Amino acid sequence: MSVLKRAFCCSIVLAAAFAAAPAKAGDVDIVDAKARKTANGWSFSVTLEHGDTGWDHYADLWQVYTPDGKLLGERVLLHPHVQEQPFIRSLSGVVVPEGVNEVIIRARDSVHGTSPQEYRLSLTAE
């Protein structure tokens, strides 16, 4: 096999290996979110996925905003979830102003800060 063919084959094998390798910790991914109206406001359950590596790099917060940017509530995550991915955490008692029928959820990790992802969630009282 020629040197050029061998180099090409090696590059294909390396590309496949890197594509199959698990991603390293980067931005937090908001996988899912649910909201439920309660007597004390709204309760949110948010599913996050992040390549937590330990105390030095982990998903540490998610927040609920109105579409115009007003912070309604936040859930601080006090420890890494290395062995629990994805994971769900909840926040209750969030007061959503009258007339707001959609919220935006954002998440953050301890290294990269707030993820560019904005998860839009429609609010419907059941």
Rank of each mutant, 00 (worst) to 15 (best):
S45R: 11
Y58M: 07
A19C: 07
V13R: 08
N101Q: 09
G99D: 09
A23W: 05
P67N: 06
G54P: 04
S90N: 11
D56P: 03
S92C: 03
H81S: 05
Q63M: 11
S45T: 13
E126H: 05
V103F: 01
P80R: 01
H50T: 01
G113Q: 03
T53V: 14
H50S: 06
E102Y: 09
S92Q: 15
H57I: 01
G93I: 13
G54W: 04
D29Q: 15
V13L: 06
W62R: 00
V46K: 02
G26C: 10
I105S: 00
Q85I: 15
H112M: 14
W62F: 01
V82I: 13
T66M: 08
E126F: 07
V31I: 13
P22M: 07
T53F: 09
G73Q: 03
G54C: 05
A39P: 09
F18S: 15
P80S: 03
K37H: 12
F18H: 06
L4Y: 08
W62M: 00
S2R: 06
T66D: 02
V82K: 05
A16T: 10
A20P: 08
F18R: 10
R89Q: 15
K24F: 13
A21M: 03
S92K: 08
N101F: 08
K37T: 09
E98V: 15
A25R: 00
S92M: 10
T38R: 12
A39W: 11
H81I: 12
S11E: 06
Q85P: 10
S90P: 03
I105N: 00
A39T: 14
I105M: 01
D109G: 00
E118C: 08
Y119H: 05
Q63L: 09
E74H: 11
C10D: 11
T114M: 07
A20Y: 09
A107M: 11
E118H: 02
Y119Q: 05
T124Y: 14
A107P: 03
E84A: 10
G26E: 11
G99K: 10
E74Q: 13
S90G: 14
P22L: 04
G73Y: 00
R75G: 02
R108N: 11
H79C: 11
L4Q: 10
A39R: 13
L78R: 12
L71R: 03
K5E: 14
S45I: 07
A39V: 14
V111M: 08
S122R: 13
H57Q: 09
C9R: 10
D68E: 14
D56H: 06
S90E: 14
V111R: 15
G54T: 11
N40Y: 10
T47D: 01
A33R: 01
V64S: 01
P80D: 04
R106W: 05
A25T: 06
R108K: 15
E102V: 11
D27A: 14
S45K: 08
R75W: 03
V64T: 08
L123R: 00
V3D: 12
G99P: 05
E118W: 04
A15D: 04
T114I: 12
G69S: 02
V82M: 05
V3S: 14
